[in-house]
Amino acid sequence: MGLQLCSVEKTYEMNSVGVRALRGVSFDIDQNEYVAIMGPSGSGKSTLMNIIGCLDVPTSGTYVLDGADVSALGEDELAEIRNEKIGFVFQTFNLLARSDVFHNVELPLIYAGLRPARRRKLAEEAIARVGLADRMRHRPNELSGGQRQRVAIARALVNQPSILLADEPTGNLDSATGAEIMEVFDALHAEGNTILLVTHEDNVASHAHREIRLLDGLIASDSFQSEAA
């Protein structure tokens, strides 16, 4: 299982000029790996993250997720995969401002078509997991940045995805709060989750056990780090 990318390329049309964001990227990520994808802006890491997150498909090459080729699926099929297999955590949290914590976390389960009783149980478990059981009925604007990111993590976890995909998860947080959030990821990894961090901060990347560096749409380095890093 896990995911396999093979010669993935992505070219965007911009003002009728093709921009090659990814120029042939190949790597495998196994279950329960803890990987950081790094690179300067323009290196293609956002594009890579969109493809891994099934928000976009490669122009060429294949992407196999949990044994299924997802590189040529249609929009609704990708939506289904995102719902079942991907848990997103964004830099800007991306919570629904008008909905409370419970509803935000419940949302993926609604789109998965679960019954209300089951949704309630799973959502409450996920919220408890990130330590916000007492904030269930609060709205995002009543929470601190760290708490909001915890809500986002709970939402990402709630459908028990194959990968947690975190895009600069500490980018909008102060360093102390950021460290707390990274502890949450560490703990989730210890519980058996596969985690992919996209970041340009070394101290964030240092939590991961493997570091893939991108440069100009190609892999510049792919290295395993010592546990104690």
């Binding site: 997150g53 609704d76 995102r82 993926p108 789109y111």
Partner: peptide, 15 residues
């Protein structure tokens, strides 16, 4: 933006 969030977490076009 809200539509983007909903789609990212799995809302299909029909939804």
């Amino acid at each position: 933006h809200e539509i983007g969030i909903r789609k990212a977490i799995g809302a299909k076009r029909r939804a």
